[in-house]
Write a protein that binds this DNA or RNA. Sequence first.
DNA 1: ACCTGAACACCGTTCAAGT
DNA 2: ACCTGAACACCGTTCAAGT
Lengths: 209, 209
Amino acid sequence: MPLPVPVRPARKRRGHYHHGGLREALIQAAVRTIDRDGVDALTLRAVGSALGVSRTALYRHFSDKDSLLSAVAAEGFRTLRDALVRAWAQAGRGLPGLRAMGLAYVRFGIAYPSHYRVMFGGYLNKAAKGSDLETAGSAAFRALVDALVELQAGRVIQADEPLLQARYVWATVHGVTMLAVAGTLGPEAAGGEALAHFALERVERSLSI
Amino acid sequence: MPLPVPVRPARKRRGHYHHGGLREALIQAAVRTIDRDGVDALTLRAVGSALGVSRTALYRHFSDKDSLLSAVAAEGFRTLRDALVRAWAQAGRGLPGLRAMGLAYVRFGIAYPSHYRVMFGGYLNKAAKGSDLETAGSAAFRALVDALVELQAGRVIQADEPLLQARYVWATVHGVTMLAVAGTLGPEAAGGEALAHFALERVERSLSI
DNA sequence: ACCTGAACACCGTTCAAGT
DNA sequence: ACCTGAACACCGTTCAAGT
């Protein structure tokens, strides 16, 4: 006995010509899979079928799997940058702004641990100058540099070499985030929050005039 | 025409019964492969054939590939701990000892980037309390805690909660190491060294009384 | 006990063929 | 241009069989 067929067939996998925006859709599908199941669970077959598309359709937009992951990383750096500049502005700049920025950074990593890991998984290593990934990563970093330069100009923090100073601050929040993400700080996000506050207080003290 | 057969056949892949120490040999072979070619290049077939052993021999000693990688991570934490305590002692303890410890940490990561990445690749996340990996990781961390407690007792640094203080210092050197390993600091190890010095100076200032 | 060889399910990637 | 389906080489893992 045949099952009753709805008059309007539910959205099914038709011939499906995914015209336009497939590239962006592939990245988003990959991000979703990674954030939910981890990087190891990301297969080109899965990301394709999530969009109702063949597993080789992707090769029209990416040269290989690493290229897709690089795009995922770049996407992450853009999201991170947005979070940083928003935190900086909302906290009214100044030292509170720096503190808010640091906290926003750690929270981003805790919220999207797998995504965060891809961002620092070594793709940046091989990213060419001017590539999408390199540009996005640099832009996120520059948000921090700009804030520090402004604080230096206002005589709020020491006038160290801005690049080195920014790297130091970045390394600290990055380290806090990695320890939180790696589960070294216990099961809950609370450990990450507490450590972030402690560390950011120390960073401020170490930079203060 | 048969090839001439040497009287004493050169050491060849015989039946090869790798009795005793295969477990340790497998870990060492994996470490070598990882440090030379990266984690992605590590296949059970390669690690087996590097020892003249079948690719499934490994399952006598490890439940799966992740289990082997956990052992690799544990091995790394033991090596790291040795480097830390040696640096601390050789620098004559005190603040110079703490500085030497931090530098030894960063240098370890730069020297064995792939190995280092495995150590913080998330296996610690799932490691059971009392497991080899958890024990080795805790021991390395305790080397730092012990040093800080000694400095606190000598009134050299602030009497913060030792665990939180240690996590803060760890996060900083870990962050410096990760940025160096990820290639974010430029091509050479010099960037890592310079940042390490800058950061360790700031950490000292932030903890000083 | 420890190891092997064949087999299985799965993966990234290539490529000729379709619209 | 964009997508498909079959094919290839490779992988982790299982398992019956060998010593």
